[in-house]
C-alpha cells in the first residue's frame, strides 16, 4: 500500500514510570488530515511529538513499539533524528517566530541546512509564504520584524517556516487555539489547501475544529486510542459509548 504514510505499531511511551501512551496502533494515509481529540492529559500531544521524536529532548523517557514513516522505522538504530524532523515539520499552539525579519524566519531552515543560493532562498521564501496564505499580506514588508505581525499572521508565518524545508508531514499542536475566529478560519482553510501536498496531523481541544477539517479523527483517552475512524463516522455514529459521551459533552 504505497499510500500508507505513517504506520504506528503497538507504540508505548513512558515518562519515567508513568505510561503516557498504551499500545497505540494507527495507519495514516498520504494527503489526509488526521484530527486528534481527547481530554487534557490523554496523551494526544505526546503522541504527536513522538512522530518527529520531539520527545527525545525530555529526560527519562522510554518508548516501545514502532513508528514507520514511508516504511522506515524512525526509532531505528541508524536513524538521524534531524532527517526525521526535516521530513516531519511541526507547528505549535503558540506562534513562536524567531526575533528576526519575516523573510529570515522563513529562510532560517534553509540557511541552517547549508543552502546559500540567494535566488533559491528568495523564491523558496516566497513560495512558502504563498502556500501559507500569508504572501499577499507581507510581501511589501518582508524586512520588518516578525513580531510586527498579528497573532494569526505569526502562526501562518510559523507554518511557512515549517513548509520552507519541504517536509512531507505536518504536525500541528493546537495551531489555532490562541487565535480569533477569523484567523482560525484562515488556518482551517489553509489546512484544507495544504493537504493536497502534505499529510497533516492536528491535535485540537476544539472538537468542532476536528470535525470541520479532518478526514480521520482519533479519540484518545488516558493514553489509549479509543476510536479511530472517518471523521463523518466519529461525529455522527461513533462506535464506542465513551466516544459518544465525549463528543456530546456528557463526559465525566
Amino acid at each position: 500500500m504505497d499510500r500508507l504514510k505513517i504506520c504506528v505499531e503497538d507504540f508505548n511511551f513512558y515518562y519515567g514510570n508513568v505510561q503516557a501512551l498504551k499500545n497505540i496502533s494507527m495507519n495514516v494515509y498520504k494527503n489526509s488530515v488526521v484530527g486528534i481529540i481527547g481530554p487534557s492529559g490523554c496523551g494526544k500531544s505526546t503522541f504527536l511529538r513522538s512522530l518527529n521524536r520531539m520527545n527525545d529532548v525530555i529526560n527519562n523517557v522510554r518508548v516501545e513499539g514502532n513508528v514507520f514513516i514511508d516504511g522506515k522505522n524512525i526509532f531505528g538504530s541508524n536513524v538521524d533524528v534531524v532527517d526525521v524532523r526535516k521530513k516531519v515539520g511541526m507547528v505549535f499552539q503558540k506562534s513562536n517566530p524567531f526575533p528576526k525579519t519575516i523573510f529570515e524566519n522563513v529562510a532560517y531552515g534553509l540557511r541552517i541546512n547549508g543552502i546559500k543560493d540567494k535566488k533559491y532562498i528568495a523564491s523558496k521564501v516566497e513560495r512558502s509564504l504563498m502556500d501559507a496564505a500569508l504572501w499577499d499580506e507581507v510581501k511589501d514588508r518582508l524586512n520588518e520584524s516578525a513580531f510586527a505581525l498579528s497573532g494569526g499572521q505569526q502562526q501562518r508565518l510559523c507554518i511557512a517556516r515549517a513548509l520552507a524545508v519541504e517536509p512531507d508531514i505536518l504536525l500541528m499542536d493546537e495551531p489555532a487555539s490562541a487565535l480569533d475566529p477569523t484567523s482560525t478560519a484562515k488556518i482551517e482553510e489553509l489546512i484544507q489547501e495544504l493537504k493536497s501536498n502534505y499529510t497533516i496531523l492536528i491535535v485540537t481541544h476544539n472538537m468542532q475544529q476536528a470535525a470541520r477539517i479532518s478526514d480521520m479523527t482519533a479519540f484518545f483517552m488516558l493514553g489509549e486510542l479509543i476510536e479511530f475512524d472517518q471523521t463523518g463516522t466519529i461525529f455522527t455514529r461513533p462506535k464506542k459509548k465513551i466516544t459518544e459521551d465525549y463528543i456530546t459533552g456528557r463526559f465525566g
Binding site: 468542532q208 470535525a211 470541520r212 471523521t231 463523518g232 461525529f235 455522527t236
Partner: peptide, 9 residues
C-alpha cells in the same frame, strides 16, 4: 445534511 450539521456546525 446530517453530516454537514455535525461536521460544520
Amino acid at each position: 445534511c446530517v453530516s454537514l450539521l455535525a461536521l460544520r456546525q
